[in-house]
Simulated assay, not measured.
Amino acid sequence: MRALLVVNPAATTTSARTRDVLIHALASEMKLDAVTTEYRGHARDLGRQAAGSEDVDLVITLGGDGTINEVVNGLLHEGPDPDRLPRLAVVPGGSTNVFARALGLPNDAVEATGALLDALRQGSERTVGLGLAAGTPGSEDEGVPARWFTFNAGLGFDAGVVGRVEQHRERGKRSTHSLYMRQAFRQFFGEPHRRKGTITLERPGADPVTDLVLSIVCNTSPWTYLGNRPVYASPKASFDKGLDVLGLSRMSTGAVARYGTQLLTSSPERGPHGKHAVSVHDLTDFTLHSKVPLPLQMDGDHLGLRTSVTFTGVRRALRVIV
């Protein structure tokens, strides 16, 4: 077996020594080419090269969710073809590692490498569904390139939080859970549309849902983690189904306290619920429109402002080692 290992040297939870140990362990079991990313988008380029190669059987990422997202977008640049494309394996090295943990992998890089090698020996893999987002035809975002995401996307509030965190990271701050919480509070108090939102959810065969302040799109559950605590925005979301959406139509102080508490105490059986909460399960195609440009994020990566995004849930898009 020939594998490509894509290493993010800026991964927050792995040292250079740990990376060397992991590379040695992987290389002892397969023919391994290890490449360290050098610029934003490099992992995507490497994934694209692997997709076009007849020699690469497996692409392994050593990094966080952003590295995985880039590799996936490279692998699927010509569309999903699970029988032809290299399989994907992930070794978590970021601060949160939602995709790896949603797959049931250990959050420790060394333990995850051991689990990966065991899975390869046993031939254990699954084919997962992914989300695809693109500018809506006929809108001012029509020309925006389509992009895949592995676990979640968001238009509005949560994407604004992600953007604030990225600004701090560019100034040298570490990506920590406390940083996210601080920026969530600042985003809330700076949100001009928190009492009446600007987002409309449109889907075939149903009435539109209007005036949403927050819209979270989930491809799996949990939505994210706070340390070791899983947070379930859409508990029924699954890699084996379409996409789920959680929308909130009000973010007053009282509503935020109520729904924030529900998120922190959420479980696989129950997520946020109530008068101003909208939950939609297993969607294949839908669109989020906004009356004003709002921030968009995918897999924790801030992608700028959008007014209309069309989402597609693509089942059985990629084979993953688990």
Rank of each mutant, 00 (worst) to 15 (best):
H193T: 10
S221N: 09
L263P: 07
T210C: 15
S238G: 02
T265P: 15
D207H: 13
H281I: 11
M251D: 07
R229W: 13
G156V: 12
Y180V: 06
L248N: 07
N219D: 13
E202F: 03
G156E: 00
E166V: 14
T176Q: 06
P222R: 02
Y259V: 02
R250V: 09
V161M: 01
S215M: 10
Y232H: 08
R186N: 05
L248T: 11
T198G: 07
R258P: 07
L201S: 00
K241P: 10
Y225N: 04
T198N: 05
A255Y: 04
K241C: 11
T224C: 07
E269C: 08
V165F: 05
S178T: 15
V162E: 01
G260S: 04
G190N: 06
R270Y: 15
G197D: 01
H177E: 04
G156Q: 00
V161I: 13
E202A: 15
M251Q: 01
A237E: 01
R270G: 14
L283Y: 00
S279A: 13
V217T: 09
S175I: 11
T176V: 02
Q167K: 04
T265M: 11
Q167S: 07
G271L: 02
M251I: 04
G197P: 00
R182L: 04
Y225V: 13
H177L: 06
R258N: 05
L226T: 03
T198R: 08
V209R: 09
L214K: 07
T287N: 08
L243A: 04
V278W: 09
L212N: 01
D282P: 07
S290F: 01
G247T: 03
V209W: 05
E269G: 08
R169A: 14
G254H: 03
N228K: 15
M251N: 02
K196D: 11
M181Y: 06
L212C: 03
G197N: 02
D285R: 10
Q187I: 15
S175C: 11
R164S: 15
Y225Q: 08
V217N: 00
S267A: 09
R203T: 02
F157R: 10
Q183W: 09
L288W: 05
L283I: 01
T200L: 11
G154N: 05
F239S: 00
G227D: 13
T261A: 10
R182M: 09
S215F: 12
R258S: 14
Y232W: 13
G163L: 03
L226D: 08
R171S: 11
G154L: 15
P204G: 05
T176I: 09
A257W: 10
S234I: 06
S267F: 09
E166W: 08
L264S: 12
V231I: 08
V213K: 01
L226S: 14
G172M: 10
S234C: 11
A255E: 14
R171Y: 12
F185M: 15
G254S: 14
D285T: 10
C218G: 10
S238A: 02
K196Q: 11
G154W: 01
P204V: 01
M251A: 13
P272Q: 04
M251L: 12
G227P: 03
H193L: 06
G247S: 14
A206N: 06
M181D: 07
L264V: 13
F189A: 06
S279E: 14
P222W: 05
G274C: 09
F189H: 12
K196C: 06
P235L: 00
L263N: 10
K275E: 15
T261P: 13
K241G: 15
K291E: 09
K275R: 11
